[in-house]
């Protein structure tokens, strides 16, 4: 038997299992990689967050966010998100969505057991709900639930609906219902014509996982300061490393893509 294990048979075995495990259709779409690039760029772990907290870049972004929050509050756009950002502080580490959680200099989550919900109704009467929650002040639980009701089957969205849940130490790490899969991108159009693209990550390895919610031009978030071509990427991220987790950031994109260097002042 031993001498029969030729290179040819090894090659056949490896190629067979590789194709079975990764059929062509299972490779993430390139646009997903592009989106993930955005997420990676803005991802912070705890140390980075701590460093960033005192940086000029951080302060500049703080001012930008402060302006944005004011506009959101005045405009009443996207009630869920507006409420979430309303408590933004230019001084502290309340980067965004402090109703959900805030990034401390240690990079840990705080603000336990708070849920923010954003609900939108589509032209067909369907309802999309985006719900986020953070429930572990010890530093590491984030949950994002995206659900759609009344959406016709097979429209590409229901397939990715369901719960996305990450639970981190000190208990267990339990990915649940990851039926929308890694890197899946789905779009949904709300009643006002806003087109949302959801980019899903997953959380079943110890490496940081990201869940991105991309609000495109004309989206609920695209209020006055954004009208000059900027739009916002609202990013939820989760880190599952010890004592550090989860960043969520507003990221500004201009007509030519993400601006390298400093963030613009709105």
């Amino acid at each position: 038997m031993t001498d029969l294990l030729t290179g040819e048979r090894i090659a056949r075995a490896l190629k067979t299992v590789a194709v079975a495990a990764v059929p062509d259709g299972r490779v993430p779409d390139f646009s997903t990689v592009a989106c993930w690039e955005h997420l990676y760029v803005e991802d912070l772990d705890g140390d980075e967050a701590a460093t960033w907290a005192g940086s000029p870049r951080r302060r500049r972004l703080g001012r930008s966010l402060g302006a944005l929050v004011a506009v959101l509050a005045l405009g009443g756009a996207g009630t869920g998100i507006a409420a979430a950002t309303g408590a933004f502080s230019t001084e502290g580490m309340k980067l965004i969505a402090p109703a959900i959680g805030q990034i401390l200099p240690t990079g840990r989550w705080t603000a336990a057991n708070v849920t923010t919900r954003l609900s939108e109704t589509g032209p067909d009467g369907s309802t999309l709900t985006l719900e986020t929650a953070s429930a572990d002040a010890a530093g590491g639980c984030m949950r994002l639930v995206v659900s759609a009701q009344g959406v016709a089957p097979n429209d590409g969205f229901v397939a990715c609906g369901g719960a996305y849940s990450t639970l981190h130490p000190p208990t267990t790490h339990t990915p649940t219902n990851t039926n929308f899969g890694s890197g899946a991108t789905r779009t949904w159009t709300s009643a006002n014509g806003t087109r949302w693209t959801f980019v899903y990550g997953r959380s079943n390895t110890s490496r940081a996982k990201k869940v991105g919610v991309v609000a495109k031009t004309g989206a609920v978030l695209a209020t006055a300061p954004i009208s000059n071509g900027w739009f916002i990427l609202w990013v939820l991220t989760a880190e599952s490393t010890s004592q550090q987790t989860a960043g969520r950031h507003l990221v500004y994109y201009g007509p030519t893509g993400r601006q390298t260097g400093e963030y613009p002042t709105l």
């Binding site: 048979r9 790490h173 990915p175």
Partner: peptide, 26 residues
């Protein structure tokens, strides 16, 4: 992973379906 292994394990893939020899070699 060796550093963070206590923080989570990957979800197992679905089993590969192939003939027994292929699976044994793999």
């Amino acid at each position: 992973r060796s550093r963070d292994e206590r923080f989570g394990q990957p979800v197992d893939d679905e089993p590969i379906e192939a003939d027994p020899e292929v699976i044994e070699i793999w």
